[in-house]
Simulated assay, not measured.
Amino acid sequence: MSDTTTNTLGALIAREDAPEALQVAEQLAASVAGALNLRQHGDATLAMLPGGYELRDVTSIIEKAAPVRNRCQGTVMLGDVDSLLAYCDDQACQEFGYIYADPDGRSITAIFNDQRLRAVPGWRDHRAHFTAQLTPEFQKWMSNDKKAMSQGEFAEFIEDNFADLNGQDAQTLLNVATTIQATTGINFSSARRLQDGQVQLTYNEVIDAKAGADGALKIPQVFTLGLRIFKNGEGYKLTARLKYRLAAGGVKFWYELERPERAIEDAFAGYVAAVREKSGYVVLIGKP
């Protein structure tokens, strides 16, 4: 018992109300003895205190003072599937854990101390988590899907996102955008579909109030994007249909992505297939 505690007991006993002071002193002494007499209950460390006091779990306090933890726990957030696979391999808990893939949330969560074995039920608090994040370029194409643009806006959009266009479609659309942007004061008069599937827009360029020059502009019916859907992911091909509308001598352009939600599902399904093939864990579809 410390000198401070001994002096406190002596001061209490010396008071005039010695019986009551003695009772308080005895309770204080019992509290100190209970605090020093720690008990183990499984992995928990408990201190037994007399009536009027609380039973407190001091396990975490003692564990923090130890050089290592008594078991693995916590959640690590990872940025790509390769990192998730590497972490899962390091934990080597294929016998005890599950991996959960959630297509709606586009997330994959590994629980290393799960309840896979009934004889060894785990606490389910040792985890690794990965969420597939959409790339800025894919979000830009998604946010402008089915959005009508003026001639200038369409030309600027194609030029700004030229790197996302795939193959010959890239040069064709760039030519369309360049022609529109370079030609001022034009009136579109008609449109017809050609045998190769492209659309030909006939326009008249007004040079002055009396004269003009006629021309024809071909635009493709469909074009292909080649871009990453998820950050740190691989490239993915996506088809889009180019649409137009003639109005008041001008033309509005827009595009419609073909089932972009399906493309997201397919890209995430590729992640799930890779984890199922390489991790060695049982992969379940659902939320943990």
Rank of each mutant, 00 (worst) to 15 (best):
S143P: 00
E234Q: 15
D169S: 11
F230W: 12
L85Y: 03
N37T: 14
R276G: 04
Q91M: 15
Y281N: 00
N144C: 07
P67N: 07
P220I: 09
Q195E: 15
I61R: 07
G185I: 05
R127L: 12
N37S: 15
F157A: 01
V199A: 09
A25C: 09
F162K: 05
Q151G: 05
S107P: 04
S190Y: 10
Y98F: 15
E16F: 10
N7F: 10
R106C: 12
V283T: 07
P260V: 06
E63P: 03
G51A: 14
E265V: 11
Q168M: 05
G79N: 10
N204S: 11
I62T: 06
N232K: 15
R241H: 13
Q23G: 09
V206H: 09
A269D: 11
F188C: 06
S279Y: 06
S83H: 07
Y236D: 08
A47T: 12
K231Q: 15
A33G: 05
A35N: 13
R56L: 08
V24P: 01
K237A: 09
R39S: 12
D43Y: 07
I186L: 12
A101V: 05
Y281I: 03
L238F: 05
L173N: 04
E20A: 14
G34S: 09
I111P: 00
Q94F: 06
E63M: 06
A247T: 08
I229Q: 00
Y255E: 00
A65F: 09
N204V: 12
I99M: 09
I158P: 02
V76C: 02
V81L: 01
C93M: 15
R192C: 04
F96W: 12
V272F: 05
D102T: 06
D125Q: 09
Q40P: 00
F188V: 13
F268S: 03
S143E: 09
C88W: 05
L201W: 00
V76T: 11
L22W: 06
W123E: 12
R127G: 03
T135C: 04
A44E: 12
K243D: 12
G97P: 01
S189G: 10
A35M: 14
N166A: 11
D169N: 13
A29S: 08
V275L: 05
L246F: 11
R259P: 00
Q23V: 14
E205T: 07
G34D: 09
V58S: 02
M149S: 01
S150V: 06
R228N: 11
Y281L: 03
L242F: 10
A119V: 10
K64I: 08
L49S: 06
L55N: 03
D102L: 04
F223P: 00
M48K: 11
P103M: 08
V272P: 01
Q133M: 13
N161G: 00
I285P: 00
A66F: 07
